[in-house]
């Protein structure tokens, strides 16, 4: 099992539905977010290009946050999901500093919080909340170890990139371009 997510930047309209759906699904306090939208513009009027994409934890195969965690709170869970064990977290922020994607924040209750790929939904066979809500269906979630999954197929047929590959984290969030 190797869970991964893909974002089709050709379809994402940057509406941030993924953000608010994550907040209400996971009780993320207002003012914080586990996922976010980026807009990247290039060119000079009228030769322009805009890329919109929903971002979150990359659930890296080689995650600096897991390596830097002094208590073992940050860990790999089933399917490669990078998680934080709240009860072990001391809120030291080492993981936050080490993450090249700025995907973590300190919850007001004192522990570090981040995207879980909604593993509580995934175990029931549902998609993560952001994927399930997306009006443009630009978000995909699935198992890369299954060659027949939609995720595996997409990465075979579509051009894609990953974010900050030079950090060597082996990220599992794929941006379809």
């Amino acid at each position: 099992m190797r869970y991964a997510m893909a974002v089709d930047s050709k379809k994402c309209v940057g509406c941030s539905d993924c953000v608010v759906a994550c907040q209400t699904e996971n009780n993320v306090p207002i003012g914080y977010a586990r996922d976010w939208v980026r807009e990247i513009n290039h060119g000079i009027y009228p030769e322009l290009h805009t890329e919109l994409r929903s971002e979150r934890c990359n659930h890296c195969d080689n995650a600096p946050c897991v390596r830097s965690c002094p208590t073992g709170a940050s860990h790999y869970a089933e399917g490669g999901i990078v998680k934080v064990a709240e009860e072990k977290c001391i809120g030291c922020s080492a993981c936050i500093i080490s993450c090249p994607y700025d995907a973590r924040y300190i919850h007001p209750k004192g522990y570090v919080d981040k995207c879980t790929f909604c593993d509580h939904r995934v175990k029931d066979g549902e998609d993560p909340a952001c994927v399930a809500v997306c009006p443009t269906k630009c978000l995909y979630f699935g198992d890369l170890d299954d060659p027949n999954s939609e995720m595996s197929t997409l990465l075979r047929v579509r051009k894609y990139k990953t974010l900050i590959p030079e950090a060597g984290t082996d990220p599992q969030l794929y941006i379809l371009v």
Binding site: D17, V19, V20, A21, T24, A132, C134
Partner: peptide, 25 residues
Amino acid sequence: IKKITGNDLDPNSNGRFCPRGTGGV
């Protein structure tokens, strides 16, 4: 009240609410 989601039978939303509908809470 925790969250609002779309109704799969509904042709206006096809089971997917927009950010405003999701944020209707």
